[in-house]
Computed example of a mutant assay.
Amino acid sequence: MDFLQLAGKRILVFGVANRKSVAWQTGKVLEQAGAEVIYVVRSEARKESLAKLTAHAPIYVCDVEHQEQIDQLATEISQKFDVIHGLVHSIAFADYSAGWLPFHETPRTAFLQAVDVSCFSLTALSNAFKDLLDPEQGSVVTISISTTRMAAENYGYMAPVKAALDSSICFLAKSFSNFSNVRFNAVCPGLLKTSASAGIPGYVDSYLFAEKATLRKSAVQTSEVADTVAFLLSPRSSGINSQGIVIDAGMGTNYFDKKIVSEDP
C-alpha cells in the first residue's frame, strides 16, 4: 500500500555527505516509498563517494556558494525532467577552524559564509527551481535544529544561522503562495550522530547530555528525521505549511528531569 503516495514522485535531495547524513537516510526512505531520487552534492569527490553507495540514482554536482552553479544545475535538471515534486535541503557548513570562541568574537567571514551556505542557499535553490516544482503538490523541506533559543556555547553562531533558516521557511511559503501551492517546512531534530556534528567542539558531551534529557533516555536517530522529511514531502502532509516539526524525543520538556538535576556537577 502506497500510504505516503510518493510512488513515482521525483525528489531532489541536496547534501549527502556519507551514510550517516540526514540526506542519505532520507534518500533511502524515499526510494523505499517508490520515489525517484535525484541527488545533488557539492563536489566531484562527493559524487564519486556517493556513486559507490547508489548504483542507479542520478547524481549532480553543485556548490551552492556559487550562483552560476545553481543556475547551471537548474538548466540541466530542466532539460531532462519536466517536473520536480519535492526538494530536500540538507545543507549546512560552519568553519570552526579558529577553535571555540565566545559568540561576541565570531569571525565575520565565518558567520557570513555559514549564512550563505546554510541559509540563503535554500532561497537561491527555491528560486532556481520554482518553475519546475509541481505547483499543486510540490514540497520543499529543510533541516534545521530543535531549538535556536538554547544558547549552546559550542554550537555558537550556527544557532542564529538556523534561526534565519527557520524564518526563511515562513517567507518562502508566503512568497510562493502568490503563484502556487508549493509548501515549505523544516524538520528540526535534536542532537544527531552525523559527520557534520563531529566537527563541533565538545559535541560528544552535549550529545550524551541530550540523550539523558530525552523522555525515553535514547537519542534521536537519523532515520527518525528521514521518516519525518518523507512525510512532509508527501501529499499526506498537505495541510502542513510554513512549519518546523521538532524531532527531539521529548528533550525540550525534560531539562528538569530529577535524575539529571540530582547528578553531581
Score class of each variant (00 low, 15 high):
D2M: 04
F3G: 00
L4V: 01
L4E: 00
L6W: 01
L6F: 04
A7R: 14
A7C: 06
A7D: 12
A7V: 07
A7Y: 04
K9Y: 01
K9L: 00
R10D: 01
I11M: 05
L12C: 10
F14G: 04
A17K: 14
R19F: 07
R19M: 08
R19K: 15
S21D: 09
V22R: 01
V22M: 01
T26V: 05
G27S: 03
G27D: 03
K28M: 07
K28L: 10
K28T: 09
L30R: 08
E31P: 02
E31R: 07
E31M: 09
Q32K: 12
A33Q: 13
G34I: 06
G34C: 03
G34V: 04
Y39G: 04
Y39P: 13
V40N: 04
V41M: 05
V41G: 06
V41A: 06
A45D: 14
K47S: 11
K47F: 01
K47E: 12
E48G: 01
E48A: 13
S49G: 00
S49C: 00
K52G: 10
K52H: 07
L53Q: 11
T54Y: 01
T54S: 13
A55C: 04
P58A: 01
I59W: 09
V61H: 10
C62I: 02
C62V: 02
V64C: 11
E65A: 13
H66W: 11
E68I: 07
E68R: 11
Q72N: 15
Q72D: 15
Q72H: 15
Q72G: 15
L73T: 11
A74G: 12
E76M: 12
I77N: 09
Q79D: 14
K80T: 15
F81K: 12
F81N: 12
F81I: 04
D82W: 05
D82I: 10
D82R: 14
I84S: 09
